[in-house]
Design a protein around this nucleic acid. Structure first.
Length: 826
RNA sequence: GCCCGGGUGGUGAAAUUGGUAGACACAAGGGACUUAAAAUCCCUCGGCCGCAAGGCCAUGCCGGUUCAAUUCCGGCCCCGGGCACCA
């Protein structure tokens, strides 16, 4: 036992524990095949400047799990790093006239100190920053490998173009259709960009979701919907009188071929070549198409904007009826999704119905309700349910499935269509017209085309010492960066000046942590010791994009022979957002909460504990400081109780001869331990861990209030040890010092998790609830061994119950042993 | 608009997902200690009726299933997240 201050002095306690961990290098993770490993990872932060409460909560959750697993005897790896490329550094550069690199590195230095102050058990020797050449060089290398395998390609894609600032804008930078700095109306502009073929992995990404048993159902549902597998038919409409072979056929995809005979028009995207051709001889149409350019490149915009269209004057020939239907240009059809053309069935699709109403197009019913419960009134709305075909010639009378087959067969025989499986998932566009990112390692040669930078020339270094102003990426203006010789033909060529989407870096950092000092290869054998990540923790806002890209990247690395698993993250905990005044905390909204004043006032342990106590980890939390005081008070109380306790060693509690009060305290101790172990391991609800520990401490201090005997000391010792052990993952500094005081010279970080003593849990009596018609009337204590009939009898004779059953007849008695009796009367 | 969540006292929440609604805290009010304050300790604390014993109502709203619903089903309202260039 060490002597300690009777007062809780968090700053002193935290300094003591942290210097112990540092001197002993306590959190360095070393590969050891003889031990079970546990890789615990919380999503690394973007170095925005300082930590906010969302970070504190996120990293506290990770740290709690890591420390808990260490006490379970696992060989734990918990690393930390920086998602260091990104847009905010460029914005800061413009605002403060500071180079993005300098700004980023100084933010990292500051935030690293903040993380250290919070006492997270990181192996800092593995720290990495994605903007460092030793990191992104492997990403560039990997991209050239993918290029050689044909998994990347270049195509035209649309961006938001600010015509005043002459730059490409991110969606976030477009506010109400205008550039956030210039205020100019944005224009859609098509430019060549690099894509990675994630769509080739659609089916595998979908199938493997079912193997992710440790993932929340909601995340799997979201990803599954995002991938959006559907079964349908791809079919051709011929364009009447068209002589140009490329424009003769309009290919459309539908999941509702049963409604095919209800097609009354076809719609194409404003960027469709057919629209462009028609516009050449139609001034009004050309103007209309031009106007559709002032829409931000975002699905939410397209879905909520007013649906507009215009007749091209060109007709399409229906593949079955041979009738001619008009071809419209419609602003809601996406050129980048599918073929840029859709068939329209206003009778049975609500959007088509509204469009048809607006432009006076025919609405034709071809599906009749198959049950009397649903009504079809095409004057009011489209009838979108499945039913039986009518007005469809030879297909009349078929149901959805029969019609699907029959129409597929018919079209197939005519060479006009076939069954197709379609995915909503689109290829991953990775080009960004930005400076602060990893350079895309390609060289554009007029003779050879796009040529990857040879391995020996990697990395393509991003020049860090630059002047950054509001005219966009300076890379294109730097001759020393742009002008290179073509690696193939050696003639003068130009380096690609676009940089990678930052999701590229965050898609594989978890793997690089296992061997970030490896300078000869992207990953080495250590990756397969640590991977997959056993527990990944991060905000729910990453449920789709980041987590899907990381899963995809893992499969790419597997196919390259770099890792031997199929999925990167075994178990996933999606932390709810930390909100402030009901909205996501972000620097741009200016509603972040700085944890530092709280840490200075109460210490890191109180802040960590309150962040865990405020709500379950997966629930969103509107931050408020009120309540922090309560966590602090609790720690002070525990400190006082432990400091005032005279430790006693006892290695066999079961052998003690205990009185009833002592047995009661042991019961509470082991009930609490059992519940808390489950809360940590299975439920991952740390708020209830804390509440249960508070209950145990309340019971212990009540016990101490009536205690006089020296024989009480062992059960109190056991209760206090249990409380300190179960609190250790949450308030590690506090527990570190008190554990020593309780007579343990070895550090609590390596103390084994206590085991539940089943003999302490034995109870003879049970509390049973008595209900009449489901309403609580009384509670009685009965022996656990009581027979069901006897319990029923006791209930029927109970005074409180009798008052409610005397006026009616007992119809039924429901007995749930050891829980309740419900008497049904009328 | 589409996809995914959430809604329980004055506040954060609990109830292990069909079996005692409000554990554990915060705030508030009252009291003890103190010259005073802070700290600490004790009591009250969902609403209505009642001196009390007790009763009735109550988990966003409406309806359903059940002996029993915060929990399951149907419909609606509100809030949050994502929608492919914020990370």
């Amino acid at each position: 036992m060490s002597s300690i201050d009777s007062q809780y002095l968090p700053q002193q306690v935290e300094a003591e524990a942290q210097s112990y961990w540092q001197e002993n290098d306590s959190f360095r993770a070393v590969e050891d095949p003889s031990r079970e490993k546990f890789y615990c990872l919380a999503m690394f932060p973007y170095p925005s400047g300082h930590l906010h409460m969302g970070h504190v909560r996120n990293y506290a959750i990770g740290d709690v799990i890591a420390r808990f697993q260490r006490m379970q005897g696992k060989n734990v790896l918990q690393p930390m790093g920086w998602d260091a490329f990104g847009l905010p550094a460029e914005n800061a550069a413009m605002q403060n006239k500071v180079a993005p690199a300098k700004w980023t590195y100084s933010n990292i230095d500051y935030m690293r100190q903040q993380l250290k102050r919070l006492g997270y058990a990181y192996d800092w020797s593995r720290e990495l920053a994605t903007c460092h050449r030793d990191y992104y060089r492997w990403e560039q290398w990997f991209f050239t490998r993918l290029f050689n395998k044909g998994l990347v390609y270049k195509k035209e894609a649309e961006v938001n173009w600010d015509p005043v600032d002459q730059t490409v804008l991110a969606n976030e930078q477009v506010v109400d259709g205008r550039g956030w700095r210039s205020g100019a109306l944005v224009e859609r502009r098509s430019i060549p960009q690099w894509f990675v073929r994630i769509s080739q992995f659609s089916q595998e990404l979908l199938d493997d979701l079912s193997s992710l048993e440790g993932w929340p159902e909601k995340v799997k549902t979201m990803q599954s919907n995002w991938i959006g597998r559907s079964e349908g038919i791809e079919l051709d409409f011929e364009v009447a009188g068209e002589t140009d072979a490329a424009l003769q056929h309009l290919s459309v995809y539908t999941t509702r071929p049963d409604t095919l005979l209800g097609v009354t028009y076809v719609a194409v995207a404003p960027q469709h070549p057919l629209a462009a051709k028609a516009a050449k001889v139609n001034r009004e149409l050309a103007d209309f198409i031009n106007q559709q350019n002032n829409i931000k490149v975002a699905e939410a915009e397209l879905a909520t904007m007013e649906k507009l269209g215009m007749d091209t004057g060109v007709k399409a020939i229906h593949p079955i009826s041979q009738q001619q239907v008009p071809i419209y240009v419609a602003n809601f059809v996406l050129m980048s999704y599918g073929s840029g053309a859709v068939m329209a069935v206003p009778g049975h699709d609500q959007r088509d119905w509204e469009f048809a109403r607006k432009y006076g197009l025919d609405i034709k019913q071809v599906i009749a309700p198959s049950s009397k419960d649903s009504i079809c009134d095409l004057e009011q709305a489209a009838y979108i349910d499945k039913g039986v075909l009518i007005n469809s010639g030879e297909f009349d009378g078929l149901d959805f499935q029969q019609a699907f087959e029959a129409i597929a067969q018919y079209l197939n025989a005519q060479g006009k269509g076939e069954k197709t499986i379609n995915y909503r998932l689109r290829d991953w566009g990775v080009s960004r017209q930005r400076y602060w990112g990893a350079p895309i390692p390609m060289i554009n040669c007029t003779a050879c085309g796009a040529v990857p930078v040879p391995e020996e020339d990697l990395p393509v270094l991003l020049p860090e010492d630059v002047e950054f102003d509001d005219s966009g990426s300076p890379l294109g203006r730097m001759a020393e960066f742009v002008d290179v010789d073509c690696p193939q033909c050696k003639r003068p060529a130009q380096r690609e000046t676009d940089t990678f989407d930052t999701f590229m870096e965050s898609s594989w950092y978890y793997a690089r942590f296992t061997c970030r000092d490896q300078n000869d290869r992207m990953l080495d054998a250590r990756a397969n010791y640590w991977l997959p990540v056993d527990q990944y923790i991060g905000g729910i806002e990453h449920a789709i994009l980041h987590l899907l890209y990381a899963r995809f990247y893992h499969k790419l690395m597997r196919d390259e022979g770099l890792v031997n698993s199929d999925e990167p993250f075994t178990r996933l905990l999606t932390q709810g957002m930390v909100l402030k005044d009901g909205a996501k905390m972000s620097k741009s909204k200016g509603n972040t909460v700085d944890p530092m004043p709280l840490i200075e006032k109460y210490g890191a342990d109180t802040v960590r504990m309150f962040a865990m106590f405020a709500s379950p980890p997966d629930q969103s939390l509107d931050w408020s400081d009120s309540g922090v005081e309560g966590s602090y008070r609790f720690l002070k109380r525990v400190w006082k109780t432990v400091a005032g306790h005279d430790p006693v060693a006892c290695d066999d509690y079961a052998a003690l001869e205990l009185n009833d009060e002592q047995k009661k305290l042991r019961l509470k101790t082991h009930q609490t331990l059992e519940k808390i172990t489950d809360d940590y391991a299975r439920r991952q609800t740390f708020n209830t861990v804390i509440a249960a520990t508070m209950e145990l401490m309340n019971a212990t201090t009540r016990f101490l209030d009536d205690s006089g005997s020296d024989t009480d000391r062992p059960v109190v010792q056991e209760a206090l040890e249990t409380a300190i052990l179960v609190l250790a993952p949450i308030v590690p500094h506090f527990s570190h010092v008190l554990w020593n005081h309780l007579g343990h010279p070895d550090p609590i970080i390596d103390a084994p998790w206590p085991t539940v003593d089943q003999s302490a849990l034995k109870q003879d009596m049970a509390l049973v609830v008595l209900q009449v018609n489901g309403k609580l009337r009384d509670k009685i204590e009965v022996p656990r061994s009581i027979k069901q009939e006897d319990l029923e009898q006791l209930a029927l004779e109970n005074v409180a119950v009798k008052r409610f059953i005397s006026t009616g007849t007992v119809r039924k008695v429901i007995v749930v042993p050891e829980r309740l009796v419900n008497i049904v009367v009328n």
